Each structure stands twice: as C-alpha cells, then as structure tokens.
Simulated assay, not measured.
Amino acid sequence: MKRNRWYSTAEPTGEGQIVIIGGFVAGGYVNRNVPNIDPEFEGGAADCTYEYFPAKAAEPQAFKFLIQTSGLNAYAHTFLMPSGKMFVQANVSTVLWDHDNNVETPLPDMPGGVIRVYPASGAAALLPLRPENNYNPTVIFCGGQDMPEDHWGDYAFPTVNTWEFPASKDCQRIAPEPEGGRAVAYEQDDDMPEGRTMTQFITLPDGKLLLVNGALNGTAGRSLQDRL
C-alpha cells in the first residue's frame, strides 16, 4: 500500500480492483483525539484517505465521509451496489459513494444513534439477492452500541466502564438504490431477543441469516482503564 494503515476496510470494485478505505496509523480505542480539533489527520494518527490494490499511479485521496465520521470510522461497512457505487456506513452516517470520482451522496443517518462499526461491532450483511425484487440489494444491521457520543473517548480510553453498558438489540435494513423512485430510508426490522456487540452474520444456503457470537455488554477494543 502507499500508506501505513490498519483498522481499514477493503471492498472489491466492479472492475476487479480493491478499494482500501481509511484506518488508524498508530492504533487505539477509537480513531480520534479529544478535543477533536483535527478530524482529518488527528495529529498523524488517522488516515482518512482511500487507495487501490493493485496500486494506481495517483496518490491516495481524502474521503470526506471519513473526516465527517471521525472517531467512529474504523472498519467502515461497505457494499458494492449495481450502479458501481458503494454503500458506506460509519458512526451514524451513511453515503452512496462514487469512488471513481470521489463524489458522495448523503443517505439517512442510522436511526437511534446506534453505532455499528468497530468498536461497537454490530453485524452487517447484504440480504440474499432474489429474482422477485429484481435482485435489488438490501443491507441489514443488527446490534452494536448506542452509548452517548462523549462516552467513546479517544485513542487511549473510553470515558465509561463499557463492560457495564448494555449492547443494542436494534435491527435496521436499507435499500441503498431502490427501484421505482422510492426514497432511500432505513426501515425498522424485528429487534433481537437480546443485545449483542461483536457479533456477525452467516448467510445460510436456504437464504436465512444466522447471527452468532458476541457479548451482551461492552465493546470491542482494548484499553487498560477508562478516563473516570
């Protein structure tokens, strides 16, 4: 890669390349300092750019969405859409992204302020594509964390004992490129029986999704203490 990064996202394009998106430079709990006065670079600790593999001649370009979602933008959820654009979700924000031209179309925010990306680590999956809806893609999210924004802290620590904070049981679905002129909107799905963080979907051969693993409280990530 042209940049040192981890906690980044890799998503295939329709042309067979891979877009590598964002990440930490030096690691930590969440991708920000507090006060967050430099959301693009975080003093050299964050990389809000994207690049390709195999590498292109151009240098990595800034992805404004990652700056907007500063802090909670590690392992952004991405799904390639039929148009060639990418659905991208991080923090509470969502966009449809034309990566070829670096143009973003804002989509609705995640309802309820639930964080799905690391370290909230909710589950996300593309529902099976079916002929009855013309193979139009729908993305589903379940679990994660809805802690208040200031609880997430910074690279070093959260500001609360996260293991005492219950995970979310909320599920939402969204069709990023709906047909028939319908507006893009998140739709409430059934809640899970209990909250889960650090969970994941497995798509089964019969088209059902199995949700496995996780914890009832807390988040992913590591810190030796909180800031209390």
Rank of each mutant, 00 (worst) to 15 (best):
P128V: 14
I21N: 00
V92T: 06
F157Q: 08
E179C: 02
I174T: 00
H77Q: 13
R227L: 02
G143M: 14
E40N: 15
D191L: 00
I20S: 06
G27T: 05
H99L: 11
G28H: 02
C48T: 07
M1E: 05
C171A: 01
A46Q: 07
E149S: 13
D226R: 01
G28Y: 09
R227P: 01
M110T: 03
T13W: 04
Q188I: 10
V139Q: 02
R130M: 09
W152H: 04
R130V: 04
P108I: 13
N217Q: 03
Y135L: 13
L72K: 06
P178V: 09
W97Y: 15
G195A: 01
P158I: 02
Q145S: 15
M86H: 15
Y75G: 08
L224A: 07
M1P: 03
W97K: 12
A156P: 07
L204T: 12
R196S: 10
M192Y: 00
S70K: 01
S70Q: 03
V92K: 07
M192P: 03
E15V: 14
V184F: 00
F87D: 05
R227A: 07
F165P: 00
A76R: 00
E59K: 14
S223F: 10
G180T: 09
G143S: 11
P148D: 01
T78L: 12
M147Y: 05
I18C: 05
P205I: 10
R182H: 10
P119N: 06
Q61A: 15
V212T: 12
V117K: 05
Y52P: 01
A62G: 00
V95R: 10
I174Y: 05
E40Y: 05
A57C: 02
A125N: 03
T94W: 00
Y29T: 09
A156N: 14
C48V: 11
Q89G: 01
A58E: 10
D150K: 12
G181M: 07
Q145Y: 04
P119H: 05
V212R: 08
F65C: 01
G113D: 09
M147E: 13
G84M: 02
N102Y: 02
